[in-house]
Design a protein around this nucleic acid. Structure first.
Length: 430
RNA sequence: GUGGGUGUAGCUCAGACCGGUUAGAGCACUGGGUUGUGGCCCCAGAGGUCGCGGGUUCAAAUCCCGUCACUCACCCCA
């Protein structure tokens, strides 16, 4: 085998894809119930959408983007995240003119050129959603409530960390004080943090280097700089979470990596993951539209990693069975196999899930296959049956079988099987 | 970019420290266990360039060097 999938990319194969489908369906169900609608944007954008939207100083833009120049000389980038593209599309299509609040969700692949490790890939998949158009703290709260609901339905335990980085005024004041503090401990900081101290001081707090953690232990908390609207906004969000009985911890060091955040920032983490323990995260990003060259548009959103959810589910040992197999039709010789093929197609049109054998396997092998695939019923057709123009219909759960005329199969079999499915477990009376 | 771990059958792994006749097991796969009835069990079969290249040796899956791949961790994030 000389070709392999590219480093950091992964093939999703059938047993895993059931779980994937389950997650997607759950995500869509919950979001539809909150009246969020799907948006699909191209997987690549002009590099500037990300460079300006996310911020030149971030790791994503600084060193993780899959960028290339196309044959026309245009600088393009495979999307590393979806918030900037969604905002770009929102602005491009003047969606604010159509309604006061626009609620969008997405599911799809993202790309970041990092060294892969557990829970981190170069092509990974996120679902996320954006609530665009209002400053209301209820939007922030709703965004958090939705993720909690999705995790709840999936059976994924989580911890919620939340913080507010306030409005522009908050950050201007806090930034100054923080820089002052950082200067006093500058010689204890890592090189990276010394540099960030000037470009993006808030992110020094986010550093996981023990050196930095120690040095910033006594740093002033942004929570003390939340006044007026910033304070009210955050308190309202928290009060909704309290009312919904969603547990959280306020973490004043949580600032999140991207430049566009303001006010609420939050992160869901899981104890069942490795070093990359973030299930998802989000926040308010009122400033993004302006960074993209438009008018101010308030917005708040969230994104979660599909692979990480899958990892947790795997670790929890949750199995997601394939769609059950209603019927397996066994054909024993050429004429019967042809009948089996045709009948299978007809019964599928009638709503059944049907399997037949193409390998011309022995009767026993086909029975074993039917059993292995967990078929509810088996139809057997051989020379004898062709002669008599009737089949044997066998129920696998108890071995009960009856004969059925060819002419009755298409009408009666769906009725028998689907009737059985609707009242499972307790037979006896049949 | 930096550091650690691992590469033997489709999958999970023994065998390696102490080189030695046809490289093993379980699962999965195929056939069969008296004519056409599944699960459990039993029998048989198929399936391997021991990651790749070089070296040492009478002899290398095993020792040495190189290389590639995968993987985990750091930075950071989903």
């Amino acid at each position: 085998m000389s070709f392999r999938s590219i480093k950091g990319t992964k093939d999703l194969l059938p047993p895993d894809s059931y779980a994937w489908l389950h997650i997607e369906n759950t995500v869509r169900d919950v979001l539809h119930s909150f009246r969020y609608f799907e948006i699909r944007t191209p997987v690549f954008e002009s590099t500037q959408v990300f460079a300006r939207g996310i911020g030149e100083e971030t790791d994503i833009v600084g060193k993780e983007m899959y960028s290339f120049t196309d044959k026309g000389g245009t600088e393009l980038t495979l999307r590393p995240e979806m918030t900037a593209p969604v905002m770009r599309a929102f602005m491009q299509h003047s969606m604010q003119a159509q309604q006061t609040l626009t609620k969008l969700y997405y599911i799809g692949p993202m790309f970041r050129q990092e060294r892969p490790q557990a829970g981190r890939f170069r092509q990974f998949h996120q679902f996320g959603y954006e609530s665009i158009g209002l400053e209301s703290p209820y939007c922030d709260a709703e965004v958090i409530v939705i993720s909690a609901e999705i995790y709840r339905r999936l059976g994924i335990p989580f911890e919620l960390k939340i913080n507010s980085i306030g409005d522009n005024e908050t950050r201007t004041q806090y930034r100054a004080r923080l820089q002052e503090y950082l200067k006093s401990v500058e010689d204890q900081l890592t090189e990276e943090s010394k540099r960030r101290m000037h470009t993006n001081p808030l992110r020094v707090l986010d550093s996981k280097a023990p050196q930095d953690k120690e040095a910033t232990e006594a740093a002033p908390s942004i929570q003390e700089f939340l006044f007026g609207n910033a304070r009210i906004h955050f308190d309202t969000v928290l009060s909704v979470l309290d009312a919904m009985a969603i547990p959280y911890t306020v973490d004043s060091r949580l600032v999140r990596g991207l430049d566009y955040y303001s006010h609420t920032a939050f992160e869901f983490v899981s104890a069942d993951l490795g070093a990359q323990d973030a299930l998802g995260g989000g926040g308010r990003y009122d400033g993004l539209s302006e960074q993209l060259g438009g008018k101010p548009i308030p917005a708040v959103g969230f994104a979660a990693g599909m692979e990480r959810l899958l990892m947790v589910l795997e670790k929890k040992g949750y199995a997601f069975p394939n769609a059950p197999l209603d019927l397996y039709i066994i054909g024993l010789e050429p004429e019967s196999r042809k009948w089996a093929f045709e009948t299978a197609v007809a019964l599928r049109q009638a709503g059944l899930t049907v399997e037949t054998d193409f390998a011309e396997r022995s009767f026993k092998a086909q029975m074993r296959d039917a059993n292995k695939q967990d078929a509810q019923y088996v139809i057997i057709v051989g020379e004898e049956e062709m002669k008599k123009q009737q089949t044997i219909l066998k129920r696998m759960s108890d071995g009960d079988q009856k004969e059925l005329a060819f002419g009755d199969v298409r009408e009666k079999v769906p009725f028998i099987i689907l009737g059985d499915n609707n009242q499972p477990a307790n037979e006896e009376n049949a």
